[in-house]
Design a protein around this nucleic acid. Structure first.
Lengths: 247, 247
DNA sequence: GCCGTTTGTAACAGGCTGTTACACAATTAC
DNA sequence: GTAATTGTGTAACAGCCTGTTACAAACGGC
């Protein structure tokens, strides 16, 4: 489990000033932070990164925070802390009924937010790598991903080869493969892969993804020296080339 | 992923003074900059270059900024920052609802613009070579380009010859071929090719495109000494001569 | 606590890319 | 027409990037 201070927080607020303020403060506290200005960006960020917790403004242009929160909740366990401009008790109740894990009225002390983030993360607690970075939060994504004859069972954390043989994967190999299979035909940087599969930031000269890719290829590529499923993009990262047939 | 300061910004404003002002400032900050005075020029620039972000004036002669922004958004993920003469809250909301990523009221401090560009680029984040330089931003992006019997699979990053053989391409050769195949029957300058395929500016006496073209020809031309697919235009650049049948 | 497994780091080998240099082709000047 | 000039093709090299292996540390089951 990622430590609290290592968690990846998504701040969703239309006010740029608040975004940068929170971003700086939370980064200083050791969190990884991504920001979004509206629902569309929020979904993209959740799609692209392994978000652990969302700080969501109640008032947003377009889709408002409450309906975003509800749509998040309908499909995932992703913790949400709501922000609102007024301290109305009504808003608070609505916010919590919409499934938010906690609630904070503006203006607030950043330390207060930090305290609530810690509390919510501790409560959410049981997050594991298999659920982190999950696309399943949006839409009815399946429990099994099928590609090129392979079957990746997300419930059982099992990979079955086209021959029907169970291929044993280490936990890290599995997480990496899930990260790939959830973002097919897209160049993923080593940084993104680290975040999606490990939930951590890259260190200088970090080669761990390269090595893990190599180990994964050994198990899933017909010819690891001429990989077809996971291709290298020099200077860019890696691409998972198959398209996913979902079941 | 291109670093922020390496990104290619398109400034769309009918006021020539503002164009040159912004152009100079952003160039000084390390961005590649192209300008356009109206919607037509904007589309041409997006067509010709690998634009990473558009700074778009709300008020334009002919098609106005809002509808341009909407039409951009309908077909692509290209980030947009809107400029407007007045700081009306109404404009702001409309701008963001039209899909702009951020909004700035004139008169503004160039540093403020720079800050927002950085923020938007960071958020857009997942830019990669496969998506950059896409001609297909206007229209549906096909997954496979077919020409003269060749098959260029954009998902698998694979090239198949008319004989059905898989032709191994290096990452750089692939990127260059994609740049060509997305701009067929059109003379592309070395500078444009560098931008489309590598996402960088040319340095004085830069011959890297020539060398890469030579390497690519060796793999795809029947007779590399008498190239038919990629022809040289003396003093102009290169043309990819086949027409593309999209699937 | 012991032992097998998994993961990160270091080291090396090989491939890819940009640069340079030179040969040759196209164009221009005379 | 010839010579000078400019532009292009490609070989060779150096540096960087990536794949793989080996090893040590960390982890987990018993």
């Amino acid at each position: 489990m990622a430590t609290d201070s290592n968690a990846h927080i998504l701040v969703v607020d239309d006010d740029r000033e608040i975004r940068t303020l929170l971003s700086r403060y939370l980064a200083k506290e050791g969190y990884r932070v991504t920001t979004a200005a509206d629902g569309r960006e929020m979904r993209k960020a959740i799609d692209d990164w392994a978000i652990d917790l969302v700080v969501l403004d109640l008032m947003l242009p377009g889709e408002d925070g409450l309906s975003l929160c509800r749509s998040l909740r309908a499909r995932s366990e992703l913790p949400v802390i709501m922000l609102t401009a007024r301290g109305d008790e009504i808003d608070r109740i609505i916010g919590l009924e919409m499934g938010a894990d906690d609630y904070l009225a503006k203006p607030f002390n950043p330390r207060e937010l930090h305290a609530r983030i810690r509390a919510v993360l501790r409560r959410a607690g049981s997050l594991d790598r298999g659920e982190r970075g999950s696309d399943v939060r949006f839409g009815d994504k399946p429990e099994v991903l099928v590609f090129e004859g392979w079957r990746l069972d997300l419930s059982a954390r099992e990979l079955t080869s086209p021959d029907g043989l169970l291929v044993p994967l280490s936990s890290g190999e599995y997480d990496l493969l899930v990260a790939f299979a959830r973002h097919p035909t897209r160049v993923l940087s080593r940084e993104q892969l680290l975040d999606l599969a490990r939930g951590r930031d890259a260190q200088p000269f970090d080669r761990s993804i390269d090595v893990q890719v190599s180990r994964l290829r050994r198990k899933i590529e017909r010819d690891p020296r001429d990989p077809r499923l996971i291709k290298t993009v020099r200077g860019g990262g890696y691409v998972f080339t198959p398209t996913i047939e979902k079941f």
